[in-house]
Structure formats: structure tokens, C-alpha cells
């Protein structure tokens, strides 16, 4: 019995290792081949590079305007997420603390719209973007992300505020604090755990979103990382060393982000999913 268990444990472990290698394969193969010359790559894609040459990286850093695209993506995600947090924390709190028919209605409106799939509104949304002259504007795009992201965030904040007793806030108000002060100095610090979840899920969403920037941004100076990677792929479709090095540097920021905040990310993901 015990022996049988040990054998089955060994089998499970072996399968896990194989699966893990399979999961890492695309990244490892891309990394390995990104250091080769094109000739070297074409003769053997499975060999280790003979030397670490960063020439491909130098080429692609320049070709895809890496630092500009990276800056654009950081700006876009940063502004979008800040707006989402500012707008929805105060709204979620007030919606939870106000018990009127209007508050129920507004909350219902936010929840209902979580059902609307992006691809079904993208065309009329594009019209709105054109009408407001936000095409090719990164800050405009951040506003769009705020509009698409607030409903889920309001829902999460609303749920979290429910678990915080209201007495303290009422006492502070008696002492003459304005509501905004109460929120700013008392409530918002208490919301930290859910703010972290909202922040992480939305940073990842905006950072990795492709379709919306593809529609809204056509000026190559405003390209996000994904857009410039995509363009590079279209232009150099047979130059694999260039493409692979581009893919590695495009994936690098998220991998670093993952390495730094892994615990919070995994916690935020499962919490966001189980509540949402």
C-alpha cells in the first residue's frame, strides 16, 4: 500500500516536471534563439547559442522604439489604474453607505454593465472616441479604460465597504469632518487590501490589452509595447532572431512585475475571481 503510493507519487512528479517544461518551452526557446545569428538559428533551433551576442537586442530596441513604447505603456496603465481607483473607491463607498432607491439603481446599473462584452460595443465606442477627438491620445485612451473598468471596481469596493462598520465614520462626521475628509483620511486607508486587488487586476488588464489600442492608436509614436511588437512582427516576418528578441523584451516588464509581486498577484487573482 505504502509502496504503491510512493510509486504513484513518483509518477505524478514526473508528469508535473514534463508539464512544467512544456509550459516553459516557448519562453526558453525564444530566449535561447534570440542570441543567435539567423544562420545559426536556421541550422539548429534546439542548440544553445555559441555565444551571448546582444546584437539582435540592439537591433530591435531601436526598430521597435522600445523605450518610447514602454514609456507609453507605463503612462497608459498608470493613468488608467489611478483613475479607476480614484473614481470607483469613492463611488463604491458612497453607494454602500447611502441607502436610497437611487443608490440601488446606480449600483444595479454598474453591475448590469459588467455583462456587456467589449467586442459588442467596440464599434460605437470607436465613434465616441472619434467624436471626442481622443483618437491617438494616450490620456484619452486611459479615460476609455476608466470607463470600461469602473463597473467591476465599484462592485469590488462596494462589497469590501460592506464589511467595515460605519460607526467610526459617523463619529468623525459629528466631530465636524467633511465627508471628503472622512473618506480621504479614514476610509481610504482601510480599503488598502481591495485597492491592491483592483490595482493589480487592472494593471494587468490594461498592460496586456491589445484590441482597444489597435483600434484607437494608429500613430506609431503613441504605440504601446504590444502594438510595436505586432508591427515588428508584420515587417520582419522571416527575421526570427529579431522577432524573438523583440518578444523577450516585450515580455520582460511583466515577468519582472510578476517576480516582484507574485504573492499579491496570485492572491488578487483568486480573490477577484471568486468575488466577481
Amino acid at each position: 500500500m505504502k509502496r504503491k503510493r510512493r510509486i504513484s507519487g513518483a509518477i505524478v512528479h514526473t508528469l508535473l516536471i514534463i508539464a512544467a517544461l512544456f509550459w516553459l518551452a516557448p519562453l526558453l526557446l525564444a530566449l535561447m534563439n534570440s542570441f543567435k545569428t539567423n544562420g545559426e538559428l536556421l541550422t539548429n533551433v534546439m542548440s544553445l547559442p555559441t555565444e551571448l551576442n546582444f546584437e539582435n537586442y540592439e537591433r530591435t530596441l531601436d526598430k521597435m522604439n522600445y523605450f518610447r513604447s514602454l514609456g507609453n505603456t507605463v503612462l497608459l496603465s498608470g493613468v488608467s489604474v489611478t483613475l479607476i481607483i480614484l473614481f470607483s473607491s469613492v463611488a463604491g463607498w458612497k453607494l454602500c453607505r447611502t441607502k436610497t432607491r437611487l443608490s440601488k439603481f446606480i449600483f444595479g446599473l454598474f453591475v448590469f454593465s459588467m455583462l456587456i462584452p467589449f467586442s459588442s460595443i467596440m464599434i460605437p465606442l470607436y465613434r465616441v472616441v472619434l467624436a471626442l477627438k481622443l483618437k491617438n491620445s494616450l490620456l484619452g485612451l486611459a479615460l476609455v479604460y476608466a470607463g470600461l473598468g469602473v463597473s467591476m471596481a465599484v462592485f469590488l469596493y462596494h462589497g469590501f465597504v460592506k464589511g467595515i462598520p460605519a460607526e467610526l465614520e459617523e463619529a468623525a462626521q459629528m466631530d465636524g469632518c467633511s465627508q471628503l475628509q472622512v473618506f480621504r483620511y479614514m476610509v481610504f486607508p482601510l480599503l488598502k487590501p481591495i485597492t491592491a486587488t483592483v490595482c493589480i487586476t487592472n494593471v494587468l488588464w490594461v498592460w496586456n490589452d491589445f484590441l482597444l489600442p489597435l483600434i484607437v492608436i494608429s500613430d506609431s509614436r503613441k504605440y504601446t509595447l504590444l502594438l510595436s511588437t505586432n508591427t515588428l512582427f508584420g515587417q520582419y516576418s522571416s527575421d526570427w532572431t529579431a522577432i524573438l528578441s523583440a518578444l523577450i523584451i516585450a515580455a520582460l516588464p511583466v515577468i519582472v512585475f510578476y517576480a516582484l509581486f507574485q504573492k499579491q498577484i496570485l492572491k488578487g487573482i483568486s480573490e477577484g475571481a471568486l468575488k466577481g
Binding site: 483613475l83 480614484l86 473614481f87 470607483s88 469613492v90 463611488a91 463607498w93 458612497k94 453607494l95 447611502t98 436610497t100 437611487l102 443608490s103 446606480i106 446599473l109 454598474f110 454593465s113 456587456i116 459588442s120 460595443i121 464599434i123 460605437p124 465606442l125 465613434r127 465616441v128 471626442l132 479615460l143 476609455v144 476608466a146 470607463g147 470600461l148 469602473v150 463597473s151 465599484v154 465627508q179
Partner: peptide, 28 residues
């Protein structure tokens, strides 16, 4: 008054939500 305050605090979220989600959904 409570409703007015509510609207005030929800205004930023509601405005972006209306402009970029609800209006596109309905006008679609």
C-alpha cells in the same frame, strides 16, 4: 440631500461609465 451627495461622489465614475460604456452599448 443624501441622493445629491451620492450623485456628487459618484459623478466621476458615472461620467466615464456613461460616455464610454453605456452610450456605446445603447447607441450600438
Amino acid at each position: 440631500r443624501a441622493n445629491l451627495r451620492l450623485l456628487l461622489f459618484c459623478a466621476p465614475a458615472l461620467i466615464v461609465y456613461f460616455v464610454f460604456k453605456l452610450i456605446p452599448a445603447v447607441s450600438g
